[in-house]
Computed example of a mutant assay.
Amino acid sequence: MIPWVQLDSAKTPDGGQELRLKRRGSEFSIMLGTNELMNSRLSGSEEALAKLSCQRIASHRQPRILIGGLGMGFTLRAALAELGNDAGIVVAELVPAVVAWARGAMAEVFGDCLDDPRVTVQETDVGQLIRSEPAAWDAILLDVDNGPEGIVHKSNDALYSLHGLGAARTALKTGGVLAVWSQGTDSGFTRRLKQAGFVVEEVNTRANGKRGARHIIWIATNGPRS
């Protein structure tokens, strides 16, 4: 069997943990400690995050999409495939090394998606972008952790709090969608979404087509404010 080779590493924003980029043949993996955050062979649920969201805003003209977390670009590429030429996508990535890996060691995985004129990558906290402008986004897609808990960056917990969800709702246009990827269920998070005023769907999906681990995507739609 071909062994894994570590290509690079980077500290998490708080400096307390280390992200590691590894390669085995044509397969890439990003690890946080002993946890694999993503693998280039397992893209199904991240792609579903984009497809499900874009389907629900298909009637929106000139949609603006905010993606939290660049990762291996699965969600970005799926969104580009779903959206027309009038769309604009901003990707917020807090770890500069991840952006460097996308343009360097993992360039073959990303292809030309980062050069698409619809795409802007900002090395910043997605929470700051959410809070910066009301009614700015047709969809906000969050895949910055393994679920609604800040494991990569502890301050990400604020994204999933009732206050953070309220900020996301304020940042969305009427009929906009907040979509959150998770490796598992979280009934408390579902309740908080509803308390924040969203209409909530929980969608089960697979890591790799019809196979692989089961993951959860919350699709939370922003209705009119009372």
Rank of each mutant, 00 (worst) to 15 (best):
W137F: 15
G197D: 12
A10M: 03
E36W: 14
D14V: 01
G197P: 13
P96I: 11
R118P: 00
K194T: 12
D145C: 12
E202T: 08
A167G: 11
V119K: 00
E36V: 12
A81R: 12
V126N: 01
E123S: 11
L193A: 06
T12D: 10
P148E: 00
A158G: 10
G127W: 00
G184M: 15
G184R: 12
W218I: 07
D86C: 06
R118M: 04
A79Y: 07
K194L: 10
H215V: 03
W101K: 09
Q62I: 08
R61Q: 15
A136F: 05
P96G: 12
F189T: 04
T120Y: 04
A92K: 12
S53M: 02
K173E: 05
S132P: 14
G73N: 09
V119C: 05
G164V: 10
A135S: 14
R192E: 10
G176C: 00
D14E: 08
A102Y: 05
A139D: 04
G15L: 09
I89E: 00
N222Y: 14
E27K: 08
V203E: 15
L162H: 13
L114H: 01
S182F: 06
N204P: 09
R56T: 07
A196E: 15
T34K: 15
L7I: 03
E46N: 04
K22N: 05
S26Q: 13
Q183E: 14
I151H: 01
E149F: 06
L21P: 10
C54Y: 02
R169V: 08
G69E: 03
A136K: 05
V177M: 08
A171E: 07
R77S: 14
G71S: 07
Q195K: 11
L80Q: 03
D8F: 01
W137Y: 14
L114N: 01
R206F: 15
V98A: 13
R24F: 03
T12C: 11
W4H: 09
I57G: 03
I217M: 05
D116H: 03
R192G: 11
G104M: 02
G33Q: 01
P117Y: 02
E123N: 15
L162K: 10
F198E: 06
R118I: 03
S43F: 15
P224V: 03
H215M: 05
A167W: 11
S40E: 12
D115H: 12
I140F: 02
T174M: 11
L19N: 10
R77I: 13
E46P: 07
G44K: 04
A100Q: 15
L114G: 01
Q6G: 01
L83D: 00
R20Y: 04
A58S: 11
H163C: 12
G223E: 14
T170P: 07
A135V: 02
L70G: 03
G111R: 02
A48K: 09
A158P: 08
E201T: 09
I216V: 01
Q122V: 13
I219N: 05
I151G: 00
S161I: 04
D186R: 09
Q195C: 08
V180F: 00
G44T: 04
L172P: 03
T185F: 14
S43I: 13
V200Y: 06
M38E: 04
L52H: 11
